[in-house]
């Protein structure tokens, strides 16, 4: 067992998840691989989306994997930083837009 919740070696052990449920792992792997193949979006665009989502999900494994993936698909640090800002903006906006709910509750409860 790792000492902490996030062990840097954990990413390399990802496939061990399949040991108890190999068929589900195989389905996930096939789907995951297909998702990131070149399609209507390029591999680079998909890697940048992956990087942004990795930050929104706050997943250190995904951030490591998609930082490499972005570099290996031709993105540079400037483009990757803009992708992270996209994630941050959506995350911030998502927090802020819930203020509408807050206001509705306030109006309902207030004179």
């Amino acid at each position: 067992m790792a000492d902490g919740y996030y062990d840097p070696e954990g990413l390399k052990q990802f496939s061990q998840i399949g040991e108890e449920a190999p068929e589900l792992w195989a389905k996930f792997s096939e789907w995951y691989t297909a998702v990131f193949e070149e399609g209507a979006l390029t591999k680079r665009e998909k890697a940048l989306i992956g990087l942004a989502v990795a930050h929104a999900e706050r997943c250190p494994y995904c951030i490591e994997a998609y930082s490499r993936s972005c570099l290996e698909s031709g993105s540079n640090a400037e483009q990757m930083t803009e992708a992270v800002h996209c994630a941050a903006a959506i995350s911030g906006g998502a927090t802020l837009v819930h203020g509408v709910q807050m206001r509705q509750h306030v109006h309902r409860l207030s004179m």
């Binding site: 390029t42 591999k43 680079r44 490499r68 570099l71 290996e72 698909s73 031709g74």
Partner: peptide, 17 residues
């Protein structure tokens, strides 16, 4: 060649960029 410790992107996409 990559400026760092990673593999190069696909040659076709690099050439286009």
């Amino acid at each position: 060649n990559p400026v760092g410790a990673f593999l190069p992107p696909s040659q076709a996409s690099m050439e286009a960029d």
